[in-house]
Design a protein around this nucleic acid. Structure first.
Lengths: 146, 146
DNA sequence: CTTTTTTACACCTAGGTGCCAAAC
DNA sequence: GTGTTTGGCACCTAGGTGTAAAAA
């Protein structure tokens, strides 16, 4: 069983925020489709129906809450998000099924305080290009060749 | 301006929790009295009225939420709590006035999820023996002699 | 003079990394 | 044989540590 950070990390650059207001940023990961994949002849191919998914929590960016000004002045990186394939993990990391396809989602909330989160409006953004297949070992040689 | 962890760390050992229920643990720091202190002839003596206090946030223990069973199986340490004397700190660390007396407080909340925190009942505990005076450099030789 | 703050820096440590060999 | 998972391990890095000297 392995627990590692997501690589490469999910990163966003923000603009148009209210400089003075405070924001909380979150992300989560949802299953993309109902398939299990395999890596055959250097290609990803569907290999049956997906395994059941574990419930996944919300990952709150550790700099939350911060002002719009602070968020906008550098790229916001979620590199500390941890993934695992250990279904009995107790640390609250995102539990993914290996060889399944996932979609990260980004949530922006205007709130002064984590305690106010549940009262607040979530704005959710999905970037299709961040979709990925979870693996236990890199399949693409180009990744290790960096 | 310095930002360091609190030393020694605030630690609690838990018992009597519901093993299956999930809990969130928090701590904060409040001013103990209205005095400023000085270290004179190897003793702490009152040296005037306290400076104004900055608002202090709640520090959520990073293992939150976890089950009663997990919390009880080892000492719960808040060693990652950060203190600073930088009044314009933007990281959400606890901003303390040096040479002032403070009281840490511990909060226990039964909740599955950080999003449910504001709906939930806080049980707050104060341990008088954890009161301390904030400093920028150790005054007691016994600390450095360890 | 005493007390307190700041800065710098070498040291250390926890934890994250790729990579490999073995197991499955 | 193929594809996938696991565990180990040397390496590296971010960040926390005390200490001491200088500044205030």
């Amino acid at each position: 069983f392995a627990t590692r950070r997501m690589f490469p990390a999910f990163k966003v650059r923000m603009s148009g925020l209210d400089k003075k207001a405070k924001y909380i940023m979150l992300m989560d990961i949802v299953a993309s489709d109902e398939c299990r994949y395999k890596f055959h002849n250097r290609r990803w191919v569907v290999a049956g129906k997906a395994d059941p998914e574990m419930p996944k929590g919300m990952y709150i960016h550790p700099d939350s809450p911060s002002t719009g000004e602070q968020w906008m002045q550098k790229v916001v990186s979620f590199h500390k998000l941890k993934l695992t394939n250990n279904i009995s993990d107790k640390h609250g990391y995102s539990i993914l099924n290996s060889m399944h396809k996932y979609q990260p989602r980004f949530h922006l909330v205007r709130a002064n305080d984590i305690l106010k989160l549940p009262y607040s409006t979530f704005r959710t953004y999905v970037f299709k290009e961040t979709e990925f297949i979870a693996v236990t070992a890199y399949q693409n040689e180009k990744v290790s060749d960096v």
